[in-house]
Design a protein around this nucleic acid. Structure first.
Lengths: 233, 233
DNA sequence: TAAAATAGCGTACACTTGTAAGCTGAAAGT
DNA sequence: ACTTTCAGCTTACAAGTGTACGCTATTTTA
């Protein structure tokens, strides 16, 4: 339990404590499962916290994550096989957050307001609040790992499908056109998000305004394309 | 000049040769300057060759580049202060290639053919021929180095300016609209390029066709926006 | 209450990395 | 013919990496 170690010319009295111990006075002891889950969470959070603007998944080391999570490097393996497995978990979590974003946008649209404007604003709030989450998606989208790239693409695909369906339902555009429009819009919004990531509030507003106009171009253009086609029939 | 070394249980007779020596029979000796430039080239080419789909600038090591270039690790410093300085050089070279692409597209457009179609086709040929160059730009655009990101952005900005000017000249759109349109188009084309990077020829064609339609949406939408505004005046 | 399972730890090892220091042979300058 | 310059080399070192192995204290199971 207790141990006396000599290091760097100093004697250290070390002893183990449960990490993440509840800070209430009455420490209700955690079950093993619960404790394990907490440590897993700690690892995941630690990893996210390391993913600032100068680090990517491929550049964070297992030891670094372990350090930030407050565990020994080798303990990492009790939770993830690889650093890559952790990476995939992070991408999944990011995807989850993205889907929550979609739901939120849908709710807001239902309660009034322009579709484009509301969606873009919601998106901008998201990347402000979940800075590192969005950065992860953005970076791994063009990153060095095939698996990560595929995982991110899958999440973006959700966006496309959802937006395509919505477009068909609300405008009656034919599938092909609606799909092209949705894809273009998602790309434009993500690009704008990338620009806005490290921007100040006023810059963000400018980016948002610009992309809203661009989305309107796309929407009008798609609408126009269909009308013209119908006329020639 | 000659040296006998013992390593891994084997005696090796090593001796120095000039790398990149001309392979003609009559070896015309290179001037020092020339030789240095060649080595510099070798380093740059080596770095590009390492930038396949699984490596990014931040993940290639000085030693690795040196190895691929056939020089000693420490010799690297005779040419670049840092690995970062090499990185910036690579981005610059990539930017140069991009500008050549623009020129080529302009020439082709002048000699007939649809603007959108010709541009996209030229772009697709570019990323096929200069795979790693485009990959570099794409990756560092969202990469971990502020300096690299800025450098890439500068290059993309060239595209925007050029396309904005062209649009104003050929359609007479007001600056603001033309600029928004150009920006959207560049983003869509780059996104499509990203998709096409690792795609087969037939997939590339599909991507190209899709993005062409999307660009038309944008163009028509922008046009429409102006017409409508003029009517309300 | 005794036995089994396991989350977390410390130690250890073989690698890779960036870069400092100093040498050398050939080219360039005088 | 000499000195100077310098591209490239070898050697060396401290720091960081992933991970194998085995121990331990505590929870879980029997």
């Amino acid at each position: 339990m207790f141990k006396l170690t000599y290091i760097y010319g100093v004697y250290l009295l070390t002893f183990r404590v449960r990490i993440n111990s509840t800070s209430t006075i009455k420490e209700s002891p955690l079950s093993r499962q619960e404790q394990k889950l907490r440590t897993r969470r700690a690892i995941i959070e630690a990893a996210f916290s390391l993913l600032d603007e100068r680090r990517s998944l491929s550049s964070i080391s297992l030891r670094e994550v372990a350090r930030a999570a407050g565990i020994a490097p080798t303990s990492f393996y009790r939770h993830f096989k690889d650093i890559d497995e952790l990476g995939l978990t992070l991408v999944d979590e990011a995807g989850l957050a993205l889907r929550q974003l979609m739901r939120q946008a849908r709710l807001r649209i239902a309660s009034g307001g322009g579709v484009i404007s509301t969606s873009v604003d919601t998106f901008m709030e998201f990347i402000t609040a979940n800075n590192n989450v969005f950065r992860l998606l953005l970076r791994e989208h063009t990153g060095t790992s095939t698996a990560f790239r595929a995982a991110v693409l899958r999440e973006i695909q959700h966006f496309n499908v959802e937006l395509t369906d919505y477009t068909i339902a609300s405008t009656g555009l034919p599938y092909k056109i609606a799909n092209l429009q949705a894809e273009a819009m998602v790309k434009l919004v993500f690009s704008a998000g990338a620009e806005a990531l490290d921007a100040t509030d006023s810059q963000k507003k400018k980016v948002a305004d610009r992309v809203k106009l661009q989305l309107r171009f796309v929407a009008n253009g798609a609408h126009h394309a269909v009308k013209k086609r119908q006329l020639t029939k």
